[in-house]
Each structure stands twice: as C-alpha cells, then as structure tokens.
Simulated assay, not measured.
Amino acid sequence: MTINKSLLTGSTTMLILKLLEDQDMYGYQMIEELAKRSDNTFSLKAGTLYPLLHTLEEQEMISSYEENVDSARVRKYYSITKKGKGMLSEKKNEWQAYISAVNQVLQGGKNFETI
C-alpha cells in the first residue's frame, strides 16, 4: 500500500531522531535504514533529508562529526544530543496521542483502552 506523502511530513523528524538514538549514522545510511525498517514505505530523498539534518543541527537536536572512511573520503556522521532525545520523547508522546485519537474516531468514538 502506498502511503500519502503528506502523512510522512509530520513524522520525518521523529523517525530520523529515532534512527540516531540507536546509533550514529551518515546521511545515505539513514535513507537506507529508514527504507529497510519500514519495508520501503519511507523512502527519503537526499534533497529532503539534508535540509532536515541541517535544521536539526541548528536547533541542537543533533550534532555532526567527520570521520575518514578511506584515504580519499571523509564521511559526515550525525548523532542525537540530549536535547534531541528530549524532543524524540515529546514526538513519541504526540504520535501516540495522535494515533489513539485517530483510532478512536475510526472505531466510532469508542475508547478501547485496555482494562
């Protein structure tokens, strides 16, 4: 099933922060890992990812560092900061509240909380 791209817009930051919570990654690695973990539902383009990473770095949610991959190449890695972990926690809570509300509407307004 194809997912409407507008649904992805609000969750991209949360997904990127989650990837970086698990381990430091470079840009292309994030694109690949996100696609892998989502069975190719999420396929970010570099033109979408890098501006987001730049913004998150400006907001101090992530930081970056460079590492030599081989003698000719330097790769830029990103890691989540303490502030970014706090934001991830907030985003997860928002997401849970959102899907709970959507499910409640889809189920006819009945609240099916576990007892």
Rank of each mutant, 00 (worst) to 15 (best):
V105R: 10
G109I: 06
V105M: 06
E113H: 12
Y28N: 10
K92S: 11
T2I: 13
G109A: 06
S79N: 02
N93A: 13
M61G: 01
L34G: 11
L8H: 11
E21A: 02
L19Y: 02
I62P: 04
E21Y: 02
L52P: 01
K85S: 08
K92F: 14
K83A: 10
K85N: 07
G10P: 14
T81F: 10
A35Q: 05
T9K: 15
L52I: 12
E113I: 13
S63V: 03
Q96P: 04
L19V: 06
I3T: 11
A72C: 11
S6R: 12
T114A: 15
L34I: 14
S63Q: 04
E32P: 02
L44V: 03
Y50N: 05
A46C: 07
K36A: 07
Y98P: 01
H54E: 08
M30P: 03
Q59R: 15
Q29R: 10
N40Q: 11
G10M: 14
L8S: 08
T81Y: 06
T48R: 13
L88C: 09
I3P: 00
E57F: 04
L88W: 07
P51M: 04
Y78M: 02
H54V: 08
A46R: 13
T81D: 08
L52T: 09
F112N: 15
E33W: 00
V69K: 14
D22H: 01
D24V: 05
K45I: 12
L20F: 04
T48L: 06
A72H: 14
E60I: 02
E94C: 09
M61R: 08
H54A: 12
W95L: 15
I31T: 09
M14S: 12
L53N: 07
Q107T: 11
V69S: 10
E94V: 08
I115H: 13
T81W: 03
E57C: 10
A46M: 11
L34E: 00
G10C: 12
K36G: 00
L17E: 15
Y65H: 05
Y78F: 08
D22V: 03
I3H: 02
Y78T: 09
S43T: 15
K36T: 00
L7S: 13
S100P: 01
Q104M: 14
A101V: 01
L20M: 06
T12H: 03
